[in-house]
Structure formats: C-alpha cells, structure tokens
Nucleic acid binder design. Structure first.
Length: 599
RNA sequence: GGGGUUGUAGCUCAAUUGGUUAGAGCAUCGGACUGUCGAUCCGAAGGUUGCGGGUUCGAGUCCCGUCAACCUCGCCA
C-alpha cells in the first residue's frame, strides 16, 4: 500500500522538492486530454495532484479513469506552482504534487449527492448516506468542534480532580419523568431493564461510595417526541461532587463553559456568569430560560388593563389566575395590520393565546408626544394610555403587544413572541454569548391534572435550608437548590444540590405523593444508600449536543450528532428499529400483540 | 395524540386556469482538449411526479386516504 507520509492539508511552499505520499478521496478531476488534475481530499484538506502525460503511460491511463470519491494513494513530488497558477482559495494552493505513482485503493459508485454541494441537500438523503455526508466540510467542522469541546471538558474536570467513571446502561425502570426505553430480560422472564434517562442515582451513589468527584460523558435515553433541539438519544456531560455547596458546582461548571468557548471559538466569557431568580425570569421573560441578548422585557399591565373599558381585559383581570402582560417591540410600528394578525396573532395562538392586542406608538399630531393608535384605543382613557407608554418605556415607532389569559398561557405565549421578535427584528446576534444561571427554582409545582405536587427538577433535589419549615405548610413556596445554565435562550444544563439525609428524602417523597411502599419499591436501594453515610453532594449535567449546536451556530441537533435519529426515532442509515425473528422474541418471552383497528 | 410545511430525473428546482411529448442547471456516460482548479466545448442517456384510490374527455396540478422527512403544541422529573 502506498501509505501516506503527509495529509492533504499540510503541504506548503517550504515542502518544495520533497517526495511525499498522499492518501484520500478524489474530490474532483479535470482531464485536459493531456495533463490531468486531481483534487485529493481527506479530513485535513485538499491538495492538487498533477498527472503529466510525459510520465508513466500506464499511470496516466489510470489517472484518466479516476472518478469522484475513488480512494487512492499517490506518490509524488511537491512543486511550487508556476506564477499565475496558484489558487488563493486553497490553503495548499501555492503547491501541487506531481504524481510519480498511483494506487487505486477502491473505486466508488457515483455518490447520491455531491460532497460539499453548494446547494442544500435533502436531510433524509443525507441521513440515509450519513457516511458520505460526513465527508462534507460542514459535518467535519462540527465533529472537530465536538471533539475539541469534549477534550476541553475532560481536561478541565481532570484538573479539578474528577474521576471519569462509567455507570450501567441496563438499569431499573422508574415511572417518573420521561418514558423509558425498555430492554427485555432473557433470564428473568417478563422483566425489563430500562435505558438510563440520566445516571442520576448512580452518580449520587458514587458520592456515597467516596468517589468524591465524578464525570461521565454519557448517552441518555428518553422515549419522548423529538424536536429540533431534542433527540431520543443524547449525550450529557454528567458531573457530581461531594462536600460542596451550590457555588462550588456553579464555579467549576462556568469555568468549564468558559474554557470551552475560549478553546473552541477563542471567545472570552466573563466570569462569574450572572444569576437570575426563577421568579424574575418568569416575570421579565415569561420563561425559565431567558434570552439575555436583548431587552424587550415583559411588563405586567393587569392593573391598567383591568381599569380600562375593554371587556376582554377587564374580565381576565377579574378572574382568579388572570393576567394581562405585554411587551414593546422597538421599531415594529411599521408592521401592517396583516403582519400583526397573520404573523404574530396566529403565532401566539399556537401557545393558547386567544388574541393579541396591539398598540402602535405614534407621534401626536399637535405635539412631539407619543400616543397610542389601535382599534382598541377607544377603550382606554388618556391617562391609561400614558401609563401604558410609561410602563413599557415605549418610544415613537414601537409596537406594544399584549396577551390576556391565565398566567401560564400569557407567559408562554409572550416568551415565544419575544424570541420570535428578537430574531425578526435582528436584536439577537448569533455571536453574542449571554450566559445566565437561573436559580431559586420552586422545589415543586402543582399538577392540576393529577391533583398533586410534582418535582420541578427531580425528587432528589435539596430544598433551600431556610425554606424547609415551609415543606409542611406551603410546599409551593419552597425553593430548591437547583440551577440551570442558560445561553441565549437555550437550556444548556441543569443540576442541584441533592438531599443527603434519608429523613429529608422521605419527607420530600411524601410531599410528592410517593408513598413509603412506592419509595421502597422504586428507590429503596437508594434511600438505603443515603442511610449509610452519604456526604453532602450535588452536581449538574450539560447537554453536550446543544453545546455543540451553539458553538457551531446550527439550529438542528441532528447535525451535532454523527449518527442521529429522525423525529420518529428511526435511524435512516441502519433502518433501526426493526422487526426481529420470532425465535429472538421467544427467548425474551415476548409475544407481539397485533393492534386492532380500534387501537 | 393535535396543527403546519414539504415530497417531480442521481441532486437542486420549474411546469400559467386541469390541456401537446413533464423542462432547466448541476451530476452521470461518450467524445474533444497539455495548466485547470465550480475547467471548457460537443453529444447522449436519464421520470411509477412518494404510494393507493377518486373526479374528469384529460390530473404533477382538484378531492379522499396513506407513507416519509421536517417544524411545532402536548410531552420531555
């Protein structure tokens, strides 16, 4: 085999005269009848190889037969390109390799799509031929970023004394949280393993086991519907530390993020990363993952709206959980009525908002004062309108948008609207990195459907110590020692200080409606572990795939993963999941029930 | 489970109100060409319009169903 001595991206003028061997794929060939040019590609770059007709006749004949994506080895001599022949678009464009020997390692079928095509290629096709897609610069860059990021993360945690420890993939199913992927057991008929939604309990037990500091870059599985930023199978940077308080985890983590941003993008992230309470985030942004790149804060105007003559507002303001809130979109006063109705009202409608009230902030005819123009302006007194302008800090040319509904719908729809406007109005810049920690989460929230309290984070999250007395009287008021790290409106990770005393853990289970029997059956092993000397501990998990998305400026999680699944959890490359042999099912004690038309 | 977008040549797209033989660029194949680098020039081949029904004299186009991919609500402790 003509084994490479250099890669396709490294030759420069200073290598002139050297005899080298290159290996790679034929990116393109240009046959001039006499001289033949080949651009040879590998992960490192492109190098032009020249086959001169004055050379070996058999080799020249073979060179003319080369086609794109054939895999070859070439021995040749590096030479400086003649004046005017350099290609400034190529890193190796000042040189070329004059071929002396050619070996075809493998021919290739015509690829189903062009490598590095200038036109976007259908994603379904890319996934079906992922091994070809991965040859493209686009994917190679993402894999490079992903590799760099994981290396930095590993090194960072090594430097802080973390052990990298693996936890089981075949685990125990717990009905809380997301739907589990189940794996049938052959040896225990009728029993199933579950794939981990995260290694949560194992990492806590590693702390009980005295491992002190744990890191794992690990696959997690959640059988829920995918999204642009969500895969059923994803990678978490999983971290746990002993004998720490919240600030210790936060500081190790933010230092890690800063190192990644510095190492991959060369960007300095100022530390410490600012913190915001959950309550403030909901109040100002309507969501627990605020995009801090622009202002356009939400303002509660229930009081003003309730005092108006606009029935929609007054009835909502009077209802128990009713809220009228809005935002002021700078410069959006140019939006037409149909821009608003088709572009914005329909948009918030998707989040349950029944309507979207709007005011254009215009210049009064008789003065330089701002005034409000709207079909509903007549329901507001001049004082009320002035109050609205003041509350929103509105300027002439702005557009005020308001939603009236229950608090949850108002916040959800306005949060989404705010992000949409931030992007539509060009306020959210891609290379602006605004990290924020969201802290002081409520420990539990009331689930009206099930009529019980649910964990906001998970049942092992410790309450804020001074809120512990409220556990019995007013669980909804109890804050937890949980924290999410948010970047530009994306949740990049989250964690908490854990409960390390079995009594407190039992109490929290009780509040969550998990009976002693249920707790014993599901988490007995874990509560037992807490009873054998569990250190104070806590941790965090980062979403590595999202981290890569942000670093690469892509908005699709599939591109951040070498072999991703579709929205329906299919692998288009291998065609998993697939029907298996009857004999395999038999060994697993499984019988497939054919679903009837009613199912 | 709900809402939406898309599906036409290998790829990216076009095709007027339902109307002749479904076109173009790129790729492919053949030929020409000794300096190109998105090579160029000449020529050729390439179609179950996702699939199945229906309406119609006539369907890529309209209707019904279905499949897939994507976006999204719910869901994701």
């Amino acid at each position: 085999m003509l084994k490479r001595t250099v890669n396709c991206g490294e030759l420069r003028s200073e290598h002139e005269g050297q005899e080298v061997v290159l290996n790679g794929w034929v990116q393109s060939y240009r046959d001039h009848g006499g001289v033949v040019f080949i651009d040879l590609r590998d992960r490192y770059g492109l190098t032009q190889v020249v086959f001169d007709p004055s050379g070996d006749a058999a080799m020249h004949h073979l060179a003319r037969a080369l086609r794109t994506e054939w895999v070859i080895g070439v021995k040749g001599k590096v030479r400086h390109r003649a004046e005017g022949m350099e290609n400034p678009k190529m890193v190796t464009g000042t040189i070329e390799v004059e071929a002396l020997q050619l070996e075809v390692f493998n021919k290739a079928l015509t690829p189903p799509f062009e490598i590095d095509s200038t036109e976007p290629v259908n994603e379904e096709l890319r996934l079906r031929y992922r091994y070809i897609d991965l040859r493209c610069k686009y994917m190679q860059r993402i894999m490079d970023v992903r590799n760099k990021a994981t290396n930095i993360i590993r090194q960072h945690h090594q430097d802080h004394g973390f052990y990298e420890i693996e936890t089981p993939i075949l685990g125990k199913s717990t009905p809380e949280g997301a739907r589990d992927f189940l794996v049938p057991s052959r040896l225990a008929a009728g029993s199933f393993y579950a794939l981990p939604q995260s290694p949560q309990l194992f990492k806590q037990m590693l702390m009980v086991g005295g491992m002190d500091r744990y890191l794992q870059i690990v696959k997690c599985f959640r059988d829920e519907d995918a999204r642009a930023d969500r895969q059923v199978e994803f990678t978490q940077v999983d971290v746990e530390m002993s004998f720490i308080e919240m600030d210790d985890i936060i500081s190790v983590t933010e230092e890690g993020f800063a190192k990644v941003w510095k190492g991959v993008l060369g960007v300095d992230i100022p530390l410490p990363i600012p913190r915001m309470s959950y309550a403030d985030a909901i109040r100002d942004y309507g969501i627990d993952r605020p995009d801090m790149r622009f202002e356009m804060l939400l303002k509660d105007v229930t009081d003003i709206a309730g005092a108006s003559d606009f029935k929609v507002f007054t009835s909502v303001a009077k209802s128990p959980n009713g809220m009228v809130k809005g935002l002021c979109a700078p410069g959006a006063g140019t939006y037409s009525r149909s821009d608003i109705e088709k572009g914005l009202t329909d948009f918030v409608g998707g989040y349950g908002a029944k309507g979207l009230a709007w005011f254009k902030v215009t210049k009064a005819e008789d003065s330089d004062q701002a005034q409000l123009t709207s079909s509903i302006a007549k329901f507001f007194s001049d004082e009320q309108k002035a109050e609205l302008i003041e509350r929103f800090g509105a300027n002439i040319g702005d557009l005020i948008l308001m939603v009236a509904s229950d608090a949850d719908t108002v916040n959800k729809s306005l949060a989404a609207l705010r992000c949409k406007l931030g992007s539509d109005l060009g306020l959210a810049k891609q290379d602006d990195w605004r990290f924020v920690w969201v802290v002081d989460f409520p420990m539990v929230e009331f689930n009206t459907d099930e009529n019980r309290w649910d964990s906001l984070h998970h049942p092992f999250t410790a309450p804020v110590p001074e809120d512990i007395p409220l556990l019995d009287s007013d669980p909804g008021k109890v804050r937890s020692l949980a924290y999410d790290i948010v970047l530009n409106g994306n949740e990049m990770g989250g964690g908490s200080v854990r409960i390390h005393q079995p009594e407190l853990q039992a109490k929290v289970f009780d509040i969550l409606g998990i009976t002693k029997e249920m707790a014993q059956e599901r988490f007995g092993f874990f509560v037992k572990a807490l009873s054998y000397g569990a250190p104070p501990h806590g941790g965090i998990a980062w979403g590595l795939d999202r981290c890569v998305m942000m670093l690469c400026g892509i908005d699709n999680i599939r591109d951040a993963i070498a072999f991703p699944k579709t929205q329906r959890g299919q692998c288009l490359l291998t065609e998993a999941p697939n029907v298996v042999d009857e004999s395999q099912l038999e060994e697993l004690h499984i019988e497939i029930r054919r679903e009837g038309p009613e199912d």
